[in-house]
Design a protein around this nucleic acid. Structure first.
Lengths: 340, 340
DNA sequence: TTGAAAGCGCTAACAA
DNA sequence: TTGTTAGCGCTTTCAA
């Protein structure tokens, strides 16, 4: 089986304590002894049993992430990029990443409990925050280290990174208004998701300020998938007084909306403008390319992870609550209102 | 701090042994005693310390996955869907998923060593196999449980799931040939990836059989990203004797290729046909929708995970090597060769 | 049906 | 500079 420090101790004729100290580079070990032990360990192919180490230290050197995935067809580029951002940063600090995928609901909170109370991870990343977020309530309650991507409604004082969705949408509103659009519709994301609220707030308030408020009759709700973007766009296109622009709360639904428009022989960016949100890599490569709001997901993953590791190691991150200013990426899916 | 079985033992006035046995549902415990203990445990909010359990049992109930990600901009829907397939299946069996992201190279193998020899996981999933795959050599050598998604060149006898890429590409070749295309080009994926080889073999051999062999001058290599699909397509479009169809080895590059064509004012599916491979959710929503080869990634993730868990638990999976037959999905990006 | 005790591999307080 | 010893929380053998 595996080589243990006991084996090494036996081989060199010293105690396990000394071996342990030598391997952990303590400086109360004779320098030659240390060299001998370390060489022997290497020769014997010793690799510490991390199960034992962790048990003993009560640290897992692992951070957890529970992805809220609905249904089997989960493939939002959002998550894979976030995962990479978190995972790569974790790796540079010697941390592992433990991932579960659970649909929101009963089971989800259980997964959090198991990670926390089962001592499976040292800290958690929470993503896709909701208005009243039981996950965050729980983690605050048990005082477990976590950092979230996103805020919540009741402004608890926990560390987070978020993008300023309201600001992003204000840019969108101004852009469309400047292009002359006055019949603007919107396909929103699920209202319980916190970012939906910020984005809608920004869009509605800015449009109202500009004197072109968004009527309820032109608001649709989708589930963030292409399919639902497609379906919701169709209900808007069926209206007798069709909108000239549709603001879509995430790129994926925007792609679906574009198909719906094109299926009717209309030209995106001419007859109808479409604006997305996320700036997924795909958005630069649709036809026409999609005007959208950039969200630096990979960097956000990096930051969240960095902050979490600081928390876990007992330091206060210098910035506990970060709000990133998004940027509007102009492409060809949005254009001047058509003269008709 | 956390509740331990010792606390429960104290509370009910029994030994830790009895508590442990009651909680593990041994049948040599008085039925009433058992009920009392379990109820008490629940009341006290006991959750076993998995660190201790695992250390003791020498099992982690965790499977590992190391994603070979190049560069920071990692967002292939392929991985997120595979991850969901593996993760969800793992969860139903009570297994955790430990994920690292490493670019192929030195560090990557080290990550494997750490997972294996540090007892961090009970088994591993290997993805994106390469021709001579050191990861697989290593795992075979140390006789560690693993299942791969993909085969290797030297046909070692290890468990895998793969899709029959050669077959998929044969379908593509036949489809284009039937549509009258004779000037067919190809944007291939990196040659060291095993699936590239199968796909190219299938494409080239079938086209040759049909009497329309693919000349080297019409083969390009990309890195699987949209950007590189765009660039490589441009080099093909610059040719004086332009191809009438381009077969692209993955959807992402196909999307890029479509943009390149459209940027020149050409119509995809009319002047030039494009065929992808993967059937990512996005492919149904491009304009025009992409003809592609379906690869059931989520299900493959499920199967790989299922097989691995069987291996880990010491059973032989009934099928050790699974090859799935892909299907051609006809959409509007491919059409009859233009009359010119 | 229950309990005492050993031990998993490692670290660390304390003693020598 | 080194060794002795205890202990992390749990399972499991053995004895009662």
């Amino acid at each position: 089986m595996s080589v243990t420090i006991k084996d090494i101790a036996k081989k060199v004729g010293l105690s396990v304590t000394t071996v342990s100290r030598a391997l952990n580079d303590y400086d109360d070990v004779n320098i030659e002894t240390k060299a001998l032990i370390r060489q022997t360990a290497k020769d014997m192919g010793y690799i510490p049993n991390s199960l034992a180490q962790r048990f003993q230290k009560k640290k897992t050197d692992t951070i957890g992430l529970i992805l809220p995935t609905f249904g089997p067809r989960f493939s939002d580029p959002f998550f894979s990029e976030l995962l990479a951002g978190i995972g790569n940063k974790a790796a540079t600090h010697g941390y592992d990443l433990l991932v579960s995928t659970r649909p929101p609901g009963e089971d989800e909170l259980l997964a959090y409990r198991q990670m926390v109370q089962g001592h499976r991870v040292d800290g958690l990343v929470v993503v896709r925050t909701r208005q009243q977020d039981e996950r965050i309530d729980y983690l605050c309650n048990v005082d477990f280290p976590f950092v979230s991507f996103g805020r919540t409604e009741d402004d608890l004082d926990f560390p987070y990174v978020d993008e300023d969705g309201a600001h992003g949408m204000r840019l969108v509103a101004e852009h469309l208004f400047r292009l002359g659009h006055r019949k603007i519709a919107c396909i929103a994301s699920p209202p319980e998701l916190m970012f939906s609220q910020y984005r809608m707030d920004g869009l509605c308030s800015r449009l109202a300020e500009l004197g072109s408020p968004l009527p309820d009759s032109l608001i649709r709700r989708g589930d963030m998938s292409q399919r639902s973007g497609y379906e919701q766009a169709n209900t808007l296109l069926d209206l007798t007084d069709r909108p000239t622009a549709i603001v879509v709360c995430n790129d994926l639904m925007a792609f679906g909306a574009m198909s719906a428009i094109q299926d009717r022989g209309l030209t995106v960016g001419k007859e109808i403008s479409i604006i997305g949100f996320d700036n997924t890599p795909m958005s630069a490569h649709t036809h026409p390319p999609l005007t959208t709001v950039h969200q630096p997901i990979y960097q956000i993953g990096n930051m969240v992870c960095e902050m979490l590791i600081q928390c876990v190691q007992g330091q206060q991150p210098e910035e506990r609550q970060v709000l990133m200013k998004p940027e509007l990426i102009l492409r060809q899916s949005s254009g001047p209102v058509p003269v008709s």
